[in-house]
Structures are given as structure tokens and as C-alpha cells.
Design a protein around this nucleic acid. Structure first.
Lengths: 204, 204
DNA sequence: AAAATGTTTGACCATCTGGTCAAGATCACG
DNA sequence: CGTGATCTTGACCAGATGGTCAAACATTTT
């Protein structure tokens, strides 16, 4: 795909600046809700300058999403078929929850895209993502057959991990507003709650 | 608030048609991603005609959201402090999951709004919603203190129910694409999985 | 059946938005 | 330093979009 980008110092810097600004804006307002002017201003560049580095608004968005897709799947990739089942799954939950805390904009960008029907990443979901999920679901099934964890639907187990962890990034304002009087430990509380939940779910 | 709407037959019919069309469009493309022309076309009316019934695009959106807010909270309102704790909570989970199945557009509209920082329903969340959650969290705490269910953080319990059930509406395409070969029973499977999850979580 | 009230729409407008372009500014390098 | 390549931008454009309005059309009331 990438045939020797051979980018100059300025290109590297500006492309990075643009993608950072675009992430900020797209994750907050969605694709159609964001304007090139907003992104340009956030990046500290002029609009025509953005379009010198990217052919279109959509190209910026696609670039962001495809970069994201990779790192987004890393926590699941790291699920080790050779490890101890319950600690492996709990570690996966923790990694996902940390991503929600450390990269909430990426989570929202992804959520926005799926909500709109995922027009721009349909292929990646049906391909790469599905393959990985199928593979890891098989690992979990293996653990179940070996009697190492309680029998649960492995696909819904994975969905539930996604949903629970991403909720804390995607619905952050709601969580914060409801837990208003609680001091800033909400992520620690969430971690404890999720560990408890999945431990009980998986113990035989 | 509503001081005798005194609407004509035509008004009632058209307002309903507009809101239905707006729900269809807004839930799919978000607020900024939707146009009055789209809504008008979906409703089978002309654009100026929409604006005869609503003063602006935003007014349509706000009306939808405030109508939604009410029915959205009904399942939680029905949680009965006098009932048997575990069946009560499982019934709540089931009601929420049924809403995801039967009203996915409403769920997506809500998700879209929260993702954007909930600018138009901040008050309702900090007021009505928070009050209800505080009340029901207290009910759950009472059950815990009485030793009827396992000790869990009641707020995170409620968040987890929201997140898990709404996931099946908001991320429907993703779920469907990954469970592609499975026949259409995904909601039944989800129900069984969630019942299992919360039963194990709450049993003492 | 008029009059009054309520409904619909074609034409129009100002603004916003993604994108273009030519000319100027800056940089890399022999 | 000079020259070709790279980078930047003000001015501009076409189409989309939210919204207005006066005039036509329909319905209800008297």
C-alpha cells in the first residue's frame, strides 16, 4: 500500500498536526458535524493548507480511522491462549478500560462511525475485526471445553467487554454528571466493578 | 409547560409525521448530518411546511429528545423496591433489552446526543435522570444491606445495564456483521447471556 | 356562502462549506 | 548563492442548507 512515503520534515510535522486536530474535532462533532475550517483552526493552519496535505475532508477521516483500527484491536490481540483463562480475560478488560481512559477521543470517533452504520470501515469490520474475534472466540471456547471457565457465549462475552469499557469513554459526560459528587476515582471504581463482574461470570 | 395545545386534526397528523421522519433521519445521520430537505422528503412534506409546524431544525430535535427522555426512563422507574431483588433487576435488564430491539432509532438518537456532549439535554440528565438514578441506587443499596444481593456498586450496576443493553441497538451493525453466519436469534442469545451475567453477579 | 382561520408552497435569500487556483514565500541542496 | 522543489495563502467558486415570505389554497365557523 504505502510505497515509500519519503516525507519531508515539514510534511511529517504538519500531517501529524492535522490528524491530531482532526481527531479532536471529528470525535466531538462527528464527520458531517465537523468543518475543515474548524480542523484548520485547531491545527493552526489555513484551510487550503490542509488540502495541500490531504485531498479531501473524507481522506483525513479515513486516514484517522484506518490508523485507529490497528491500535484499537491490540488489546484483544494480546489475549494469550496459553495463559491462565480468568487472569487473561481480566487483563483484557483492564487494557480496554485503560484505553477508554487514555484515548476517549479515539473511542468516540469509533462509536460515531459505527452509529452512522460504519460506511467507511465496513470492510475492516467484516474482515480484520471479524477474523480476530472469531479466532479469540475459539480460544475462549477451548477454555470452556477444558472446564477452565464457566460456559458462556464467547461472542457475547467479547461484546460485553467492549460495551462496558467503551461506555466510560463514549458516555463520559453522563457518567460524570450522575457521579458528580463522587471524587475523581470513577475509573478505579469501574475497574473494581468490572473485575468483580467478570470474575463471578467466569468462575466455574 | 404545555398550556392547552388545542391542535387541529391536521396539526396533530402532520406534527406526528414530521417527528417520525425526523427520528428516522436524525438517528441515522446525527443532528448536523441531517438536513431539513431530508426530513421533509421522508415526511412527504415541503420544507417550508415543516417550518410552519416547527420554528427551526433544532426545535424538532429538542422536541424529539424531550419526548424520548420520558419513555426512556420508564423501565428504570418500574424497578420495584418491594419486589424480589434479583428478579426485579433481571426484569429491568429484559425491559431495556427489549427497548433496544423495538426502538433502536431512539437509542441511537440518545447515543448520538450524549456522544456530542449532550448539549441539548444536559439539564434533563443532571436533573430528572440523576434523581431517578439516585433513588434506584438507594433501593439497590437497601437490598445489599439486607443481604438479599451481593454487594456491588449500585451506580456502576445501573451503568452496566445501560451499556450492555444499548450496545445491541447502537452498535447493531457491528454485532450483526460479526455474528453474520448465526441465524436471526441474536436478541434471544443476548437475553440469555445477560440473564446469566447478572444472576451470577447478584447472587449472594 | 362569506368571512375568518388555518395550511401549503414556489421563489428567494444569506450564510456556510468543501474545494480550487495562481501567485508568493520558504526551504533544500548543489 | 541561486535555482528548483516544496509550502502557504488570499481570493474565489459552486453547491448545499436553514430559514423567510407573500400569495394561493383549504377548512372551519358564523
Amino acid at each position: 500500500m504505502r510505497d515509500k512515503p519519503k516525507r519531508t520534515r515539514i510534511q511529517r510535522k504538519n500531517i501529524e498536526t492535522i490528524l491530531e486536530a482532526a481527531l479532536e474535532v471529528f470525535s466531538q462533532y462527528g464527520f458531517r458535524g465537523s468543518t475543515l475550517d474548524q480542523i484548520a483552526q485547531t491545527a493552526g493552519l489555513s484551510k487550503p493548507n490542509l488540502l495541500y496535505y490531504f485531498p479531501s475532508k473524507e481522506a483525513i477521516h479515513v486516514e484517522l480511522l484506518s490508523e485507529l483500527m490497528d491500535t484499537w484491536l491490540d488489546p484483544l490481540r494480546a489475549l494469550d491462549a496459553g495463559g491462565e483463562p480468568i487472569p487473561e480475560i481480566l487483563a483484557y478488560v483492564d487494557r480496554k478500560l485503560e484505553m477508554s481512559r487514555d484515548f476517549p477521543r479515539e473511542s468516540r470517533l469509533f462509536a460515531n462511525e459505527i452509529l452512522q452504520g460504519a460506511p467507511r470501515i465496513e470492510e475492516a469490520i467484516k474482515g480484520e475485526l471479524k477474523e480476530l474475534v472469531d479466532e479469540k472466540a475459539a480460544v475462549i471456547s477451548g477454555w470452556i471445553d477444558a472446564g477452565k471457565i464457566a460456559p458462556v457465549d464467547p461472542y457475547h462475552l467479547i461484546f460485553s467487554i467492549w460495551s462496558l469499557t467503551q461506555h466510560y469513554a463514549d458516555f463520559e459526560v453522563q457518567v460524570q454528571w450522575i457521579l458528580a459528587e463522587r471524587s475523581k476515582t470513577s475509573f478505579e471504581d469501574a475497574k473494581a466493578y468490572l473485575d468483580q463482574l467478570f470474575t463471578k461470570m467466569l468462575r466455574t
